[in-house]
């Protein structure tokens, strides 16, 4: 058998490369164990939704991936970079991951455009013109180009969250992390933000989303992860997750959240 054939075969059979690999990850806040033995593999282009009751460790999990929280045990590898706590590994991993927060966290003293230009200028060393072009492109993509010269405080919550998404996209990260991006929004604004996220998913972005929006999970996610008390209790393909939940804890959770 020739080398060519073998590589062809593996190319067909091999699953997509791994984007995020968490192995036996533990995390403590003082003596409190917030994550225990987390094993999670996310492949390039996958959309993962993480759900679970309040305090189950969803935010902590997603924040260990870009090291907003350091983990205390196990390993996390992001696009081949092992998070070992060295400044270079942290910086490199953060360049791979964009993040969107529940509270938007826009910079209030900068305009929408400046919010989007800052990190590309400082971190990717783009010129002013290049950064402005990138910012304009992504602001238009989240349908907010017309507001570029306003300040965050002049926009609605939904608009601010779309700016926050654009700001993260301006770094052109291959992976996007979302921590309850719609939880702080009034109901009428949730849709516009979810729509932007769905568009992003269609473009093949690797996405890890903590959210309670189960409709979004059904439409977009490849897999759903259920957490409780710092553990991953159940993880399944989206249809199986909702149709045939196995553990009682997940059944109870779904019964509550879907009424």
């Amino acid at each position: 058998m020739s080398a060519l054939q073998t590589s062809d075969l593996t190319a067909v059979a091999a699953p997509r490369p791994v984007a995020v690999q968490m192995t036996k990850v533990d995390k403590y806040y003082g003596k409190f164990k917030a994550l225990s033995g987390i094993d999670l593999t996310v492949r390039k282009g996958e959309k993962i939704v993480i759900c679970g009751p309040s305090g189950s460790g969803k935010s902590t999990l997603i924040r260990t991936i870009n090291r907003l929280e350091p983990h205390d045990g196990g390993t996390i590898v992001v696009n081949g970079i092992t998070l070992d706590g060295s400044p270079t590994s942290v910086q490199d991993v953060r360049l791979e991951c964009g993040m969107v927060f529940q509270q938007f966290n826009l910079f209030p003293h900068l305009t929408i455009l400046e919010n989007c230009m800052l990190a590309p200028r400082l971190t990717r060393k783009l010129s002013k013109e290049q950064a402005e072009a990138v910012a304009t492109k992504y602001l238009e993509r989240v349908h907010i180009g017309a507001q570029a010269h306003k300040f965050p405080s002049q926009l609605s919550g939904g608009q601010q969250q779309r700016v926050a998404i654009a700001r993260a996209l301006c770094m052109e990260p291959p992976i996007m992390l979302f921590d309850e991006p719609t939880s702080a929004l009034d109901p009428e604004m949730i849709k516009e933000v979810l729509q932007v996220m769905e568009d992003l998913a269609e473009d093949g972005m690797t996405m890890i989303c903590v959210t309670h929006e189960m409709g979004f999970a059904r439409r977009v996610a490849n897999r759903v992860v259920f957490m409780d008390q710092g553990e991953i209790v159940e993880e399944a393909g989206t249809d199986a997750f909702f149709e045939t939940p196995k553990s009682d804890r997940l059944k109870n959770f779904l019964a509550q959240i879907l009424h």
């Binding site: 907003l68 991951c97 927060f101 966290n105 910079f107 209030p108 993260a168």
Partner: peptide, 30 residues
């Protein structure tokens, strides 16, 4: 200052000195 301001800088891979100069200090001044 909301903690989220520091976190947003970290998540955007803005290094601490640049974050202080462009994000934190201007808001502290106010």
């Amino acid at each position: 200052l909301p903690k989220g301001q520091f976190e947003a800088c970290s998540a955007l891979a803005i290094r601490p000195i640049a974050a202080w100069r462009h994000v934190i200090l201007p808001q502290l001044t106010r």
